[in-house]
Amino acid sequence: MPEDIISLIQESVIQGRITKDDEGMDEGMIGQPGVTELVERAPASGLSIQNIITKGLSGGMNIVGQKFEAGEYFIPDMLASAEAVSAAMKILQPRFAASNIKTKGTIIVATVKDDLHDIGKNIVSILLRGAGYTVKDLGNNIDTQVIVDAVREEKPQFLGLSALLTSTMARMADVIQMLEENGLRDQVKIIVGGAPVSEEFAKSIGADGYGADGFQAIAVVEDLASGTES
């Protein structure tokens, strides 16, 4: 019975169905429970939060990743699945403390001051949430000061900055400098991205990582996370 629920959770992640009203990928799914209904029900049937996350949600996401690589899934499919995972995580969040589980960590993301581009940043947020991170999205056109304040208050493990204009790229350096001035630089890993940004640029401003797309964003964060632990 619990096994059944795990595979149902997996399936709803693969289908990208958040609630019972979602269509999903295949036909005839409407009406069947989505990932939120399943996750709400799961602890009652004796499933540990750990299992729900690793076997159900991450297990589902793994399959989605494989389908994407095989060309069977497209980005919109991937995003739907990621959103399903993040909806499930939201429900599970209050129980983390109780069950003493370490979440994968918190990430603050923002598009820098004077830059209104946010499609890429939003995709990155959704995918990171889907990968199990707690993402706090500050939005776009965000003051350097606001970003620094958020780091001070929220104490995230990661900070993701996005910039799409060559004229706003420099704001990323400003953020890093102000974090240093405020003695906050060491407590957060900074990753940057956006079309004009490059690996070299990331190094030159002293960021910890660069992601060319949403999938790299996850990979870089995971790398940095394991680096932190060791």
């Binding site: 269509e23 497209f74 980005i75 499919d77 959103e83 946010d118």
Partner: peptide, 14 residues
């Protein structure tokens, strides 16, 4: 929505 993206509506047509 905060993200203001229509991506979710692509899927049924994909």
């Amino acid at each position: 929505t905060p993200q203001k993206l229509y991506i979710g509506y692509i899927r049924p047509l994909l």
